[in-house]
Design a protein around this nucleic acid. Structure first.
Lengths: 344, 344
DNA sequence: CCGGCGAATGTAAGCGCTTGCCACTGGCGG
DNA sequence: CCGCCAGTGGCAAGCGCTTACATTCGCCGG
């Protein structure tokens, strides 16, 4: 065909007005069954495809929800995207992905926020770190927001209880008899400011504290959320006099830590117990004890929350806390006897 | 402010016409420096943000390139997205991600193709499997396409030499003295039709053939591209009488295979040599010998290729073949003595 | 048999921007 | 001193759709 059909062509072919075509095609009321049928047929025959930009301009809605993540190529965020994408695809909505990696990108993201509200109808924000003022600005804005991984109290959120999860992980290590437990985390000292990291650190300290222990500075290291980051942190720990167990706030880091341990001639779990966080498929394969969190389900729920807001739900802010589960595997399957116990 | 500023507001504030504002803001010629400055200031003062939908409708361009991938939550495709996103972000273009998982989604993708050409200016297609006819239709269409991982000859493409890479991998195994080498692949029998999988299988057979060996049916299994898929395939292989070495067409599968081996009491590399494909970070951590391919660089190049087409490049189709490298690690670090050699 | 009412449809005014085309301006050579 | 040209800038017609409002029509109760 020469030129793409427009709504007007469909209208004249069906013998109705463009308004009727628009209504019929979108399933709106006030169209008789017969007319609708006629329109559908005409559209079919012309292979009509509505122009989304025209529709969006006219309707003032974009049919798109934005998803902001710090990086794309990590298991966690890839699954966030997958979770959101799955629900959006069902609703025939577009996903606009925004990568906010590091301070510069955050700057740009913030600067682009006003413009963003024109291109997305809703927003799923994942592990974003911004000044409080901006969160409030966002809350005052027109686009519904759901956050995953962070809970500001201002928006619908879906998180896990990071503190409790970390307590469980470290508690497990303590139950095994460890007293010299390292933490491989992330934070201002590490790659980025990350709320989850801070909470897991808090949980670690809480678990330790409950047994009268603390987290000595030399066992408290931070790295980037990656295999390499975990390895480096572990190497650092080893250089300082290795702990007998280490809690890593991501599986990638834990795998890096196991690697470093091996390089240093430490056996896991005999010489070093390791626990990770996430429970990605690889964790099970390598026998890594880790905290399972339902990543893509969380993301999907966040997506549903913004969709509900788009459908007019104006109930109170919903703050979902999803369950986690400590998966015990080989990397901690060894009872550690501390010198104290050995002599008692 | 009450209502978002529109171009007209900027125009009147700057004392020029909307046409001039449009030109000034987009850096088009035929605007004097003084005028441009005036416009910029006015826009700044009003915090003006152009409405992308209006711009796209009027201009007939979408400022968006689409990226189709089979799944989001795998290392490979996550890196593809990351690679594309990085170059698009630089050009201030949007990325529209399309997940084409399985036949149904492919169907939908194909059905949506005509509509798609209105919402994207270009397309990066990754490991997509479609009837030839549709590729040709696409080639006849208005939107430039670049493929990654598959080379149809119709579009700019960036691939690796899968056959040669597999030959190198299996050749390495042969050099180590293995003669009973299994292949864990994917294909019509596996999860999806995948061109790379077919080519790697071909390379495997070629390498074997060069030594006068063949790939017996009982050592030729297929699984899904995942840890679980690799594990199941390996278990199957073990059930049939384990080979002494196995080539897996992805790292996830290789890690699954190592897991299965361990479950079965086989030591890697002594009892079973394993080689994977991709060289994702975890591979190095677990000492997996594997074929490295520059995933995100490939994706970035594909993105550049479609951008070049958008800039009017109408040169001949470019078919880039990127280098791969066999990374030898612990999982194959053992010279296997076949009975034949042992007795000679 | 008539007024009125609601459902079905049409009319047309935008939505906010881009761009082809025309009009103006001032500096320059003739 | 005049006409011409290149460089600027304005005008206005779209881009293809949505939707408020007006209109039409069939049907019912009075």
């Amino acid at each position: 065909m020469s030129r793409a059909a427009k709504i007007e062509d469909v209208a004249s072919r069906a013998g109705v007005s463009v308004a009727t075509v628009s209504r019929a095609l979108r399933g709106l009321p006030h169209v008789s069954a017969a007319t609708r049928e006629k329109v559908l047929r005409a559209a079919e025959e012309l292979d009509y495809r509505p122009n989304p930009h025209a529709a969006r301009l006219a309707a003032g809605r974009s049919g798109t929800v934005g998803v902001a993540v710090p990086v794309l190529n990590s298991w966690f965020y890839a699954n966030v995207l997958a979770g959101v994408e799955a629900v959006l695809a069902e609703e025939a909505l577009d996903m606009h992905v925004i990568v906010v990696d590091g301070p510069d990108a955050t700057e740009r993201f913030i600067a682009g926020l006003p413009a963003l509200s024109k291109r997305v109808d809703g927003l799923v924000l994942c592990d974003l770190f911004m000044p409080d003022q901006l969160w409030e600005d966002l809350a005052g804005g027109p686009v519904p927001v759901a956050t995953v991984g962070v809970d500001t109290g201002l928006f619908d959120s879906v998180t896990i209880d990071n503190v409790a999860a970390a307590e469980a992980a470290v508690g497990h290590l303590l139950d095994l008899g460890h007293t010299r437990i390292g933490l491989i985390g992330a934070g201002p000292d590490g790659a980025t400011d990350n709320e989850s990291a801070a909470l897991r650190r808090r949980g670690t300290i809480a678990a330790l504290g409950r047994r009268g222990l603390d987290l000595p500075a030399d066992l408290d290291v931070a790295g980037s959320f990656s295999v390499a980051g975990g390895r480096e942190a572990m190497l650092e720990l080893i250089g300082r006099g290795a702990p007998t167990a280490v809690f890593c706030i991501s599986d990638e880091m834990a795998i890096g830590a196991m690697w470093a341990a091996e390089e240093a001639g430490l056996r896991v779990p005999e010489d070093l117990a390791v626990v990770g966080f996430d429970d990605q498929p690889v964790a099970e394969a390598v026998g890594l004890t880790t905290v399972r969190q339902p990543v893509s389900i969380m993301a999907a729920r966040a997506a549903h929350l913004v969709l509900a807001r788009l459908d007019g739900d104006d109930g109170p802010v919903q703050r979902h806390v999803m369950p986690t589960l400590l998966q015990k595997r080989k990397s901690t399957d060894f009872r550690h006897l501390t010198p104290v116990h050995a002599h008692s």
